[in-house]
């Protein structure tokens, strides 16, 4: 870890201005990813701007839907009664993520920005196009068991590691961002994360100095009837091999609307419009779910060690839809 200076910001402008003026600076909220990566020298920042005092708080139902302040902690949102009852997929994704200690520290905004667990990215002794553009991607024919089968490129197949982002992208969440000029803009989460392409180092549409202020989730029938299913190698404190966030509006055995996103398999939180298309208007049967799962994974490009994810992700999605409709 390099030496850095530390600034505690009390106003958004103070925070965003400090970052805008220094390309090597970074915001810090919970710090659970940032400090880890700085200790590994994967990230090097000469200044950290602490944003914890900013008023980006609150978990409330508004006319636009559920609004969550970016500085709320994972544990507080996951255990919030409103979220648990009206947006179960969000609560479930949070409570199956990380460990209680990490959830108590990590902020919601920071969680959406957590970086991949790709072992090549996290070790500076390896080449990595995400860390050092143009240096290469040994994961392509290396230990790619945990890596992405959807959205990869020849430059990068790093998996987006999150759980919350999968739930939020399924539910059409919209981020409110604020830049150094105090100007705010809204970005749908589905457009927030970028595919690696030839520039895997660029992971989101955030501009230098821009902050996530809050997240809004539109309320709909499928938000209440929703769930998150995560498959992992141990029962707690493990990243998803595959996960599915699903929301359904089923009436009389017919699916009126569907929301589907997959985790553990994509280079970004993987919203599957293909699966939704199959589901919408179809009967809520296993055959439908199977067809939807097949559609979701049609574009999958597995590598040597992650072929199993094609089947696993489909089965995970089918199981989530089955359990949700049975409930």
């Amino acid at each position: 870890m390099n030496n850095f200076s530390y600034l505690q910001a009390t106003q958004p402008k103070e925070a965003t201005g400090a970052i805008r003026d220094n390309k090597q600076a970074a915001f810090i909220a919970g710090g659970t990813t940032l400090l880890d990566l700085m200790k590994l020298n994967v990230e090097n920042h000469d200044q950290l701007v602490d944003i914890n005092l900013l008023a980006f708080k609150g978990i409330e139902q508004t006319s636009d839907g559920l609004r969550i302040g970016a500085l709320e902690r994972m544990s507080d949102v996951g255990e919030n009664p409103l979220v648990m009852q009206q947006y179960p997929v969000i609560s479930q994704s949070l409570l199956q993520a990380a460990s209680p200690q990490l959830r108590n520290m990590a902020s919601i905004g920071g969680n959406l920005l957590q970086r991949t667990r790709c072992g090549y990215f996290r070790d500076t002794a390896f080449p990595c196009n995400k860390r050092q553009p143009g240096s290469g991607c040994p994961a392509q024919d290396g230990e790619n068991r945990g890596l992405a089968i959807l959205g990869g490129s020849n430059a990068c197949i790093a998996t987006h590691p999150g759980d919350l982002a999968i739930a939020l992208v399924a539910l059409d969440a919209v981020l409110l961002l604020e830049n150094a000029k105090g100007k705010q803009r809204r970005v749908p989460l589905v457009d927030f994360h970028l595919m690696p392409g030839n520039t895997p180092q660029k992971e989101t549409v955030l501009e230098p100095g821009e902050l996530i202020v809050s997240i809004t989730v539109p309320t709909a029938a499928h938000t209440r009837k929703s769930m998150y299913l995560k498959v992992r190698e141990r029962t707690s404190y493990a990243y998803a091999l595959a996960s599915a966030a699903v929301g359904l509006d089923v009436q009389g055995g017919q699916i009126r609307s569907a929301r589907v996103a997959l985790g553990g398999v994509g280079t970004k939180p993987w919203r599957s419009r293909e699966a939704e298309k199959v589901l919408t208007g179809a009967p809520a049967t296993e055959a439908t779910f199977r067809a939807a799962a097949a559609a979701a994974l049609r574009e999958a490009q597995p590598r040597e060690h992650n072929r199993f994810k094609v089947e696993l992700a489909q089965n995970t999605l089918v199981r989530a839809l089955t359990e949700l409709t049975a409930a």
Binding site: R117, G119, Y120, D123, A125, F126, P138, D141, G142, E143, G146, E233, R234, T235, S236, Y237, A238, Y239
Partner: peptide, 20 residues
């Protein structure tokens, strides 16, 4: 262990799984 670099890719307790 990466087969080209002979270097471990999961040398930490988040990615080397032991039972919880």
């Amino acid at each position: 262990r990466d087969h080209n670099y002979a270097r471990y890719v999961n040398a930490d307790l988040a990615d080397y799984h032991i039972p919880v």
